[in-house]
Every structure is written in C-alpha cells, then in structure tokens.
Write a protein that binds this DNA or RNA. Structure first.
Length: 1104
RNA sequence: GGGCUUUUAGCUCAGGUGGUUAGAGCGCAGUCCUGAUAAGACUGAGGUCCCUGGUUCGAGUCCAGGAAGGCCCA
C-alpha cells in the first residue's frame, strides 16, 4: 500500500530540520501575506488595552544577543496580550543623541579633538551623527525582524525628534519654575579628550580600570619648625601645583619621627610606610613623640609649588577632615580643591583658596610657569624631578589602583572645577521615592535598588560641552547673571530678537539653534543659548510623555499613560532610564510613568565572563540567528531565571557551518544548546508522529468528532493535563514570568510524548479506524494544536510552521496565522484530578516494575507471569485494580496481584508524623522519635499490628505513657528481603521471576519481531509498506515459531511468511534484504540460528 | 565604609508559612526500550546545604556575627 494523497504535508524527521532555514521561509511567507500588519490591527477596536513602553535602543551599532534577550520579553508579552485581545501601540524606540554617537562619527571621520570637529563644521558633523543613527536604526530593525520581533516598524520613535526635544524643553522649563534648575560650580569627573564633564551616572562600573600611576610621598616643610615636615602622599602628582592645604583626621594619632636628623609627621598606624620606603639613602627612624591630629590643626607649611604665580597668595595650613584616615598613604592628605571632589567640598566648608590649574583639555593654564601648556598626563615625572631638585620629594613609588576612565573613549579622567547645569535633588528625591512606591518592581529587590540610588543621588548634572544632542534651552545672561529657560519652539520664536531666520526650518540642534538671541528680561541685554547639549538620559526619560504627544494631544496621552509594562536590563538602568523617567514624570505629573517594571540581569559569555568585542568572545546576533535559530535563542531566554546573569552558550563555528554545508545536514549544536533545542525537537517528533500516521490513515480531524466523555481514560487524562497547562502558562505570563510557563509546557510535552504517545502507539498502529483510534487521533491533534497556540509567543516561527500544516491546510475558516488566533482558555470541566492522580499512580508502579526488572536483570521483552504490588491506601488499591492493564502492558507481565497488609512479602516500619507530634508533645518528641527508631524489625511489625487492630500505639517513654493515634504515626510497608522488589515510600512492586518455557518462547518471538522491524528500516521500507518475509531455521526453532506466524506477520506488515527448514524453498517475492542471526552474530536469539529474508513485490498473498 | 544580591551534588539551579529520607536537569557509570533515534526509560555513584553562634522538641529554612563572589553607591 502506498499513500495516494496526504491530508497533511509530509514532515521530515526532527534530526533533518534546519530551523534557521525554516525560519527564513516562514518570514518570507509572513511578508508576502502581510501577516504582521494584520496582527498589528487585530485588536484595534478592542475595549481592553495594554500599554507597553519600549525603552529606546541606542541606534549606534548593530544589536547584539543581549538586546535579543530583552526583545524576546518585549515581543513575548505583547504577543500574549495581543492573543488575549488587548489593543496596543507596538511602538519601537531608537535612542539617537549623545556622546556615544559622536565618538563613533569622530572615529569614522578621523577627527581627534573638539578643535577638529569645529574645523570640520558643527553642522556637517551633526548631520553625520544623524546619518549614523538612521543607518543603525535600519539595521537594528532588520535584525529585530529576524528575531521574530513584531513591532509597528516604520512608526518608531526617535529621541532626536523635534517632539522629543521640545518636550524636554517644557520639562526643563517646569524645573526652572520650581527652582530646581541651577548653574553649579563644582569639581566634576572630566574627560580631557572629549573635553566634557561626565555625570556620576556615567563613570561607574565599566568606567573603572586597574591602572598603575606614579605616586609621590612629598615633604611639606613646616613654618616655624625647622627641619620638621609633614609627610603627604598623592597618586596624582599634577594636582600638587594646586595644593592649598594638608588635611589630618583630628581623632587620629600621629607620630613625629626622627630620621637622618630630620623630623616627619605621619599617622602612627602608617609608620610601616617608612620601613617599606627606607632604601639605601635613608637611615633608621625613631618615634620622638605622638600627638592627635587635632593638635596639628592650624600649623603653617610651605607649599610644594609656592614659586608659581598661581600659588603666590595661597596660605598653606593643616586643616581637620573627618575623612582623612589611616587606610593608605600617610594619614596626611594633600588638598587641592580645584582638582578633587572632596577637596572642593572641604574648601567650601573651611573657606580655603581654590586653584584650578587646567583647561578643558587637561592643559595647564597661564600662571604655572614651566607647567603651562603641558598636559596633566605627561607631568608626573617632571613634577617628581622638580620636587627632588627642591628637596621636597621623600620618595616616588608606582601605585596600582582602580581609576576612572571615560566610558566611551577610555581616556583617563581628571577632576576639574567647572560650571555645569544641575537639577537639584534636595527635595525632589523624596517626591520620587513616593512615586517609586506606586510601582510593582520585578524582581522585588529592584525597589530597594532604586530607593538606594535615590537616597544617594547627587544633583543631576544635565549639561555636556559637546555638539550632538539636545540643545539645552537655557539662556544665561552674561551681564546680570539672570538665566531663563525656553519651554517650546513657539516661545523661542516669540522671544527671539535675532537669528530666527537662520534657525527656522532646522531641527532644534546645534549649530542653528545657537544663532538665536533673546533679550534678558532682567537687564535687557542680548543673550545667547549656553553652548552645552543635554545629558542623553533626558532624551530617554521623556519618552513616556513625548511618544504619547503629551503637549499636543493630551487626551491621547492620558489614554496610554502610564505604561502598564516596561522591561530593561536592570544593572545600570536604576540610575539611567528608570531614574530619568522617574525624575521627569515626578516633576511633570507627580506620578509613576509605568505600573510594572520587569528587570533582567546581564548576558555573559559561555564561561561567565563579560562579552566584549576586544576579548573575542562576542556573539554576533546575526550569526546566532543563522546558526542556532531565533526560536531556539528565544527558548533559551524564556527558560532562564531573569534576575540571574545568563551565560550565552557558544554558537557553531565557521568550520562547523562549512562542514554542515558540505554534508547537507543541519549544523550540530553544542551540548548546552541541545538542552534548549531538545524541546523543539520533541515538539517536532510528536508533530512528525501525528502527521505520518494521520496521513497513512487518511485521517482528517475536521471530518471526525467524538465527545471527550466517550474517549478513553488515557485521552481524558492528557486532555486534563492540557487544561492544567493552559492554566499554568496563562497565570505565569500574567505575572510576567516566562520560566514557569516554559516549564509547564515542557512538562506537558513530557507527558504527551513519553506517556500518552507510548501508550497510544498500539491504538494507532492497529489497522481499523474505530472509535478508539479516532479518539486517539483527535486527542493528539487537539493537544498539538493547543500547545502550539500556547507556544506562539515563545516560538513564533516553529508554531507557525506547525499551525499552517496542522490547521490551515485542512480548515480555510481558521485564522490565517497562529498569531491571529485567540489565546486558549481553560475548559475546567475537562480537568479530572482523580484521573491525574491515578495515572501518576500507574506511572509510579510501572517505574517500580522497571526497577525490579533491572534488579532481576530481565529485559522487558521477556514476558513474565506476575507482578505483586502494594500501595498505601485502599483508594489506590481500587484504582490499580481498574488500571492494571496499563501497568501490565507497559511491563510485559501477565497478571497483577495486590499484596494485602498481611502479605508475607512485606515488612513494616513506623513513621512518626513529626508535624503533628511536635506541637502536641513538645520536648518529649525527640524521646518518642528515639524510641520508635530503636524498634527491631519484629517490634515494628508488632507495633504495626497493634495500630491496625486497636487504632492506637501505646508505649512508655521517659516514665510517661504515650498513646499515638493513626494520625500521629504512619505504618510504612517495605519489602522483605528475598524477593526481587522495588519500593518507594510505601509503594512496592515485587516480581515473579520464574521464566517458564512458554514465557521464554514468547520472549524469543518478541525479539524476533523486533529484529525484523529493525531490518525493515535498514532495507528502506516505509512505515506503511507491506513486505514479504521468509525465515530459514532448524526444526526446533521452526516448531517454536509455528504458532506465532499470524502475530509475526501482523506486527511486521508481512503479506506472506515462508517458514522453512530448507534453503531450497524459495519465497514468492523479490528479495530486498537478508540477515543471519546466530550465536556468533551481534544479535542473538538464544542459541538458535535463523536467516531472515525481507522482500517486496509479493506475488502470492496467501500464506504457506 | 553603606545598600542590594548570591553561596545547596562535578556543572547549572529548585527547595511557600521551620518537621527528621534535601530534589531536578546536565555530566559520569551501568542497564533497558525503540519504525519518535542528536530521542526516551530505569538504576547507581556523587551533599559538612559557606562558617560560627543563637532561638526551638526540631534549622537548608528564622535571628545575630563572620567569610567569599557579583552588582550598585560612597
């Protein structure tokens, strides 16, 4: 028989599926059919809505696999909500402005400094920045589509848009109105290459590098104390030229030591430094006296660079500072308020002089004599030499420490006194905290992280002295010191007294916006915009407003604000996107910009190390998609606990890909990837099984119906499990958890393929299409189609492939894509808990039976006569009596006997129920436990009998009469030694191992059938092909096989069977395959020899 | 120095409200089953639940202190 026409498209075996290729063809089909567009419109008239707000992806490079992680969540939840009928916006966002884009454009144009940029022309430079952003936005869109990310592509928001920028202006205006905005003079971390300050959001984490610097121990000669010196230590020699004070901790004990006739002061605890630095040129030292830091305060000393004009008027003295400590250095801290954060703070507190030595490029200004014109990074040694000449250097020493670098260009930062613009957090932080409390944080510790950040957050520095970014709408009057903030384009036009014509027609970016001049409202002078651009987190933080047209369409904004859901990688975002959104939303509306925040951790390389381009362990997204497949990648993400870092397994190498191309086989994945891929393969296997057999039977599910109530117990069980799975997946996703749903699906798949399908084989294998077989097909079909609907948000490609073949190919009325289907609902009436319990009981007993066979070393193909089973409860006994067939069939055993409580195969132990006994008996519990544990096997048996007959177990312990009820102590049956048994918590299976001659023959026949099946496959027959069969053997085996001929033929689809003891008998078919089984061959049939011949084109259908 | 987080089998991780026999997957060793075959089942080896102290009849679980790693902030 051959299949003339298929109901379903025939399916290749799971090991031949090329998933990435399959994904490509499905993508093409989606594109041709405009499926995504239909998906986007599906719920446009729905009452329910789900407001997702996309955190903008930086459009500066191709996206990586770490973006794919986040985008998998974004896509998955939006798809889920779509299937549930929620109206959505599906808007993707691109982050466009900021230094990171500038840095790349500079590289492309080979520009080194800000001077180069200005020579190149700001207008042209800004244009290049825009170009770069659009280029990568396009690229990222293509990549996202490859991931199966369905957004309203083309309707994206860009943070460079006028709307975005002007909405930030209105925010800043509001800040000014509330008095939150100010110009601050402070020492900031500063990148001398980028010539801009960095906000403290920018220098943490990756910014720090382990670096070695020249550190100096310097002698500060004390005034009026001849030959006495303060010993100070610094890791930044260039700052010595700006020294104004030396700080000591007033609480700390300092020592005055004598060495080579000179006296030094330093912290007592750090005297070891002197030893460590001794060297040949220094003599021994001895402590002359000790004193408190407080005693030294006020002492005058001569600064190390008093000869410089800039230091001329500075009076150096010892000042008190709580932060000075004895953890390193000398306990005496060199203070240069123009070059250090804390130093500057101290100077404000104590009214110290401030010397700011370098310009924006880190070059010494006028007034520093020989240092003027030199760069901070080149003067370390020169300073050391100069100090040596002046006799002020005690010792130089190389010092390794963590030092901040520019997070974009890796240049070492310096600290520099600058004018920058800030938003004050003094009172705002508490308002934001109130807003943070309104938000659901997943994981919950996100709340604590954000609160911690808010508690510690300094004022937000929003200005940056660069070119490409938000033009800060601040007009700072140089005449009278008044500053004004412009809130929108119209206001700008109104206030402009010059430059509007030049600006008009351009986006609000540099340089055109710089042309505008306004009139100072206070003094009437003409005022220019400050040249600074904005911190890029302003750009991202405003999107809950700008993307919803807060300024221009308030109603629309109200409809979608606040977002139901946002998700990003949390390390970092607490101080970046989450933070900036919170600040802006608190200022503008005093309310939370999103209701639920879902954060996930960091993606690492396979070995747990950070993924970096430079270390070569970077996985390129496109490679991952093409070598492993998007669905597999998505499944990896969905299965991962989000709050833990994810180690991304290595993908197949170029070599692997080449090999795959040569052999034509799908590329082999690593063991780690297979952990993930196996689920897809299992789904495919079940799918293959269904399609293959349904085609053989010409089974079209639309043409058959059978109420669930009329189906078999097995069918009803798996349908019940399916309902439970729908329930678990739905609940999990509603709580923004993918791991439990993924687990639920996997566990259902195990039940379906390992138990349901195994148990259904016989039903489907039999020839006639009766009600039982129809029930099996329908059940399997329903399980498959429901499961792929549940999987659609997780595995959009695979689920579509299966849907098209399983559903659309036979039902034109069905939605054209699985992604246009409704989310499955639970049919509570199909949940049968008793049946679930009973099926699990059967599985458990079968497991024990297999274990017993293992112990007896009797393979399952060898039939056995009896299995003796004990279960703990009467209900289970009753169930097992009903379900014994399933157990026996699985285990290949003839009969199942229940062992009663008094069976001589059983022994007993007593098991106290501590949870009940504990509260009742208190301290006595441990004694009772000891007593019961000490019972001999015989005593335990008696105790069991006593409890069975009287209902209580009484004994004396610690002079107290104890009487335990059946609730308090459980009797557990165990197997008595001497039988081949397996047991588990009161469940016991014992095997009758006698193999009678009849059983032995049956076993041999089963072996033989198995061998023939194997040969069919080797000979290349299809599953449904009929064959001719000839068996040549000796008289003994022939006699054994004689009665089983019908069975052999039926099982192997043989049309005829020649069983002969003479090779001279020829079969009436064309021989295809021949194999000899003998004691010498790898396959064995006890001691017999038999030659098996398989053939086709059977001439005579009648048997011998 | 402060906040958050982690520490359980060789590896990756589960282990509501405390209950005496701490689990899973992978890996390893062995066996079985198989016309789902890169699959599946079973068995086995493998544990000081990071350490110390406390609360309790009873602590992987609660409390305190400490150690180590990660993230964040000073």
């Amino acid at each position: 028989m051959s299949v003339t026409s298929s109901v379903f498209k025939p399916v290749v075996a799971a090991d031949r599926v090329d998933y990435p290729k399959l994904e490509g063809s499905i993508q093409n089909w989606w594109d041709e059919q405009n499926v995504r567009q239909q998906y986007l419109r599906r719920n446009e008239h729905s009452e329910k809505k789900f407001s997702f707000l996309d955190g903008p992806i930086t459009a500066n490079n191709p996206m990586g696999v770490h973006h794919a992680w986040g985008r998998t969540y974004k896509d998955l939840y939006q798809r889920f909500k779509t299937m549930q009928g929620y109206r959505q916006r599906y808007q993707n966002g691109f982050d466009c402005q900021g230094l990171w884009v500038e840095v790349n454009v500079e590289k492309d144009l080979k520009l080194e400094t800000k001077g180069d940029i200005e020579k190149y022309g700001i207008a042209a430079f800004v244009e290049k920045c825009k170009e770069r952003v659009f280029t990568f936005a396009k690229r990222q869109t293509e990549q996202s589509i490859r991931l199966g990310y369905w957004m309203d592509w083309g309707n994206d928001y860009y943070t460079l848009s006028d709307e975005n920028n002007y909405t930030i202006w209105s925010f800043l205006k509001k800040c000014q109105e509330r008095g939150l905005l100010y110009k601050g003079r402070d020492v900031m971390p500063w990148c001398p290459r980028c010539a801009t300050g960095l906000s403290n959001m920018e220098i943490e984490g990756e910014g720090y590098k382990e670096l070695t610097h020249l550190s100096l121990y310097v002698r500060f000669p004390l005034v009026d104390r001849p030959d006495e010196y303060l010993l100070a230590w610094t890791t930044t020699p260039w700052t010595l030229a700006a020294n104004v004070a030396a700080a000591v901790n007033p609480e700390l004990t300092y020592a005055k030591v004598e060495q080579d006739g000179e006296y030094y002061y330093l912290a007592e605890q750090l005297l070891s430094v002197l030893k460590a630095l001794k060297g040949h040129d220094k003599g021994d030292y001895k402590v002359v006296e000790t004193l408190k830091g407080a005693d030294m305060v006020g002492w005058k000393y001569n600064g190390p660079f008093d000869e410089l004009p800039a230091e001329k008027d500075v009076k150096h003295s010892v000042v008190p500072w709580k932060e000075a400590n004895a953890s390193e250095g000398t306990g005496i801290v060199h203070i240069a308020p123009g070059c250090g954060r804390e130093d500057f703070g101290l100077s404000k507190e104590l009214g110290l002089d401030v010397v700011a030595p370098v310009d924006e490029f880190g070059i010494y200004k006028e007034g520093f004599d020989w240092l003027t014109g030199k760069h901070t990074s080149e003067v370390g040694k020169l300073v050391a030499e100069n100090l040596t000449q002046k006799g002020l250097l005690y010792r130089p020493q190389n010092y390794k420490h963590r030092y901040p670098t520019c997070w974009r260009c890796k240049t070492e930062l310096i600290f520099r006194l600058v004018d920058e613009w800030f938003i004050s957090m003094e009172t705002l932080r508490y308002e934001i905290m109130d807003v943070v409390r309104q938000i659901q944080w997943i994981p919950a510790f996100g709340f604590d992280r954000e609160m911690d950040w808010l508690r510690n957050m300094d004022d937000w520095m929003i200005s940056k002295k660069r070119y490409w970014g938000l033009a800060l709408p601040i007009f700072d009057c140089q005449q009278c010191g008044n500053f004004e903030v412009i809130g929108n384009r119209e206001e700008l036009q109104e206030r402009a007294v010059a430059g509007w014509e030049t600006f008009d027609g351009h986006t609000p970016h540099r340089p055109y916006v710089d042309e505008i001049k306004i009139k100072c409202q206070q003094c009437g002078s003409e005022v220019s915009r400050i040249k600074d651009v904005g911190n890029p987190w302003l750009d991202a933080g405003i999107v809950p407003f700008s993307t919803l047209h807060y300024r221009t369409n308030h109603e629309h904004w109200q409809e979608w604000f606040s977002a139901d859901f946002v998700t990003e990688s949390f390390p970092g975002q607490f101080r970046n996107w989450f933070y900036s959104m919170l600040v802006m939303s608190t200022v503008l509306e005093k309310t939370a910009p999103f209701k639920t925040l879902f954060g996930y951790a960091t993606l690492m390389a396979e070995d747990g190390s950070p993924m970096h381009k430079s270390t070569g362990n970077m996985v390129v997204f496109d490679d991952a998609a093409e070598r492993v497949g998007s669905d597999t990648m998505r499944w990896l993400y969905a299965n991962h606990v989000p709050e833990q870092n994810l180690n991304f397994p290595a993908i197949p190498s170029d070599k692997d890909m080449q090999k795959s191309a040569e052999t034509g086989m799908p590329v082999r994945l690593s063991e780690k990837w297979m952990l993930t891929r196996r689920t897809l393969d299992k789904i495919w296997n079940v799918y293959w099984f269904f399609v293959t057999y349904a085609n053989i039977d010409q089974f079209d599910p639309t043409r058959h119906q059978l109420p669930v109530a009329r189906r078999s117990e097995l069918d009803r069980w798996i349908i019940s499990e399916l309902q439970q799975t729908i329930q678990d997946v739905t609940t999990g996703l509603e709580q923004y958890d993918t791991t439990k749903p993924a687990e639920a699906i996997q566990s259902f798949l195990e039940d379906l393929s390992n138990w349901y399908l195994r148990r259904s084989r016989e039903r489907i294998w039999k020839s006639q299409l009766d009600e039982d077989k129809i029930g099996a097909y329908l059940t399997l079909y329903e399980c498959l189609t429901t499961m792929i609907t549940l999987l659609a948000p997780f595995l959009p490609f695979l689920s579509e492939e299966l849907y098209q073949n399983l559903v659309r190919s036979i039902d034109e009325q069905a939605p054209m894509s699985v992604h246009l289907c409704d989310w499955p609902t639970v049919r509570a009436e199909f949940i049968d808990e008793q049946l679930t319990r009973e099926t699990h009981l059967v599985m458990r007993i079968v497991g024990l039976g297999r274990a017993a066979r293992e112990k007896a070393q009797i393979r399952v193909r060898q039939p056995l006569n009896a299995l003796y089973v004990h279960v703990p409860t009467g209900t289970e006994e009753e169930a097992l009596r009903r379900l014994s067939d399933q157990v026996l069939e699985e285990l290949n055993i003839k009969q199942l006997e229940l062992m009663s409580a008094d069976s001589d195969m059983l022994a007993y132990t007593v098991r106290p129920q501590v949870k009940v006994l504990g509260p009742k008996y208190g301290p006595l519990v441990q004694k009772i436990l000891a007593h019961l544990k000490g019972l001999s096997a015989h005593e335990a048996q008696e105790a069991a009998t006593q409890l069975h007959t009287t209902g209580t177990l009484s004994f004396t312990v610690a002079d107290k009469e104890v009487s335990l009820s059946q609730d308090e102590v459980q009797i557990l049956a165990t197997a008595r030694p001497g039988f081949v048994t397996a047991e588990e918590r009161g469940y016991i299976a014992a095997l009758e191992t006698t193999i009678t001659p009849e059983l032995r023959e049956e076993g041999m026949v089963r072996d033989l059938i198995h061998f023939i099946q194997d040969m069919r496959k080797k000979a290349g027959f299809n599953i449904e092909d009929h064959i001719g069969l000839a068996l040549y053997t000796d008289i003994n085996l022939a006699q054994v096989l004689q009665p089983y001929q019908q069975e052999i033929m039926a099982e192997t689809l043989a049309l005829n069977l020649l069983l002969s003891i003479s090779q001279r008998d020829f079969p009436s078919f064309e021989e295809v395959y021949r194999e000899r089984i003998s004691p010498e061959s790898p396959k064995k049939l006890e001691g017999y020899t038999i030659e098996i011949v398989l053939g086709k084109n059977v001439r005579d259908g009648s048997q011998l």
